[in-house]
């Protein structure tokens, strides 16, 4: 059985690219291929023109796996120091790099604890901390917010935002579409081991893109149905599909005819819509 096949996409410098897919879609296999932990039976995976392992052995990658799999008898600070050592951070800079990563991920109070005493969320923050130890040109996060509370999920988005750099490629695999829509430029939707669609999130979110909208109105539903493109009524709501300009023109015309609009929201996020059609199709 093949976990993935006929997969082809690139991640360029300066980009944040997401990989989305249902459970068992092949996301983790793709990441294992990218990290050179597995080799492809056919085809080629390259990182900066090199085989993945050759690239990683030369300069390393910042990697956060879905589950923190390091010996749980290690202490938090020891774990970071060990990984900083392996990453080749010079002895003189190691303590500062660890302290900075601990500070950035808010795990200072657990510094002296054994890893087995940490909660799932704190282990995940430690994983994030070790990925931030040294600046790498390639960053790979696999289900990065797994186990994080809402506060740290939001903080994670800030951290990814801070990682954007012209010479850095960031790849984030997640089943959390909302998260990917907020942080990624493009999202590769994978299902049954194949790329089903690549969504240009930023372009799709632009004003000119046609999207599904849901309008709540206290009165004037008929006017809304008459002036909004592809409009359909669902009780007190009207759904339509339009770009931002057409939406505003339709709303203005309907309001002029007496419609009383109380709310306008996207009916579905760009990514949710693409994901639903890609995966169900």
């Amino acid at each position: 059985m093949r976990a993935v096949e006929e997969v082809s996409f690139t991640v360029g410098p300066g980009e944040v690219v997401g990989i989305a897919g249902p459970n068992g879609a092949g996301k983790s296999t793709l990441i294992a291929l990218l990290l050179g932990l597995l080799g492809p039976d056919a085809g080629e995976v390259t990182v900066d023109g090199l085989a993945p392992r050759a690239f990683i052995e030369r300069e390393g990658v910042a990697y956060l796996p879905e589950l923190m799999t390091i010996p749980l008898e290690w202490h938090l600070e020891e774990a970071l120091t060990r990984l900083a050592t392996l990453q080749g951070i010079p002895a003189g800079a190691r303590a500062a790099a660890c302290a900075q990563a601990i500070e950035a991920t808010g795990i200072a109070e657990h510094r002296g604890k054994r890893l087995k005493a940490l909660s799932k969320g704190n282990l995940q923050r430690l994983g994030l901390a070790q990925a931030l130890l040294s600046p790498r040109r390639v960053v790979v996060f696999d289900e990065p917010t797994h186990g994080l509370d809402p506060v740290w999920t939001a903080r994670f988005r800030e951290i990814v935002g801070g990682l954007r750099a012209p010479d850095r490629a960031v790849l984030v695999a997640s089943h959390n579409l909302d998260e990917l829509e907020r942080i990624a430029d493009r999202v590769v939707i994978v299902d049954r081991g194949r790329v089903q669609r690549i969504v240009e999130v930023r372009a799709a979110q632009a004003d000119g893109a046609v999207r599904a909208w849901r309008i709540q109105a206290a009165a004037g539903h008929e006017a809304l149905l008459a002036h909004l493109p592809e409009a359909a009524r669902r009780g007190a709501l009207v759904d339509c599909r339009a770009d931002v300009a057409a939406l505003n023109r339709g709303l203005a015309a309907a309001i002029a005819e007496g419609a009383l609009v109380t709310a306008v929201v996207p009916a579905e996020s760009v990514l949710e819509e693409a994901f639903r059609t890609a995966v169900s199709g």
């Binding site: 990290l35 932990l37 990683i56 052995e57 300069e59 990658v61 990697y63 390091i70 010996p71 392996l86």
Partner: peptide, 14 residues
């Protein structure tokens, strides 16, 4: 088996 290789060998190590 325990997946430690994922952490160990994302560092520039042969």
């Amino acid at each position: 088996d325990r997946g430690y290789v994922r952490f160990l060998f994302s560092a520039p190590v042969v």
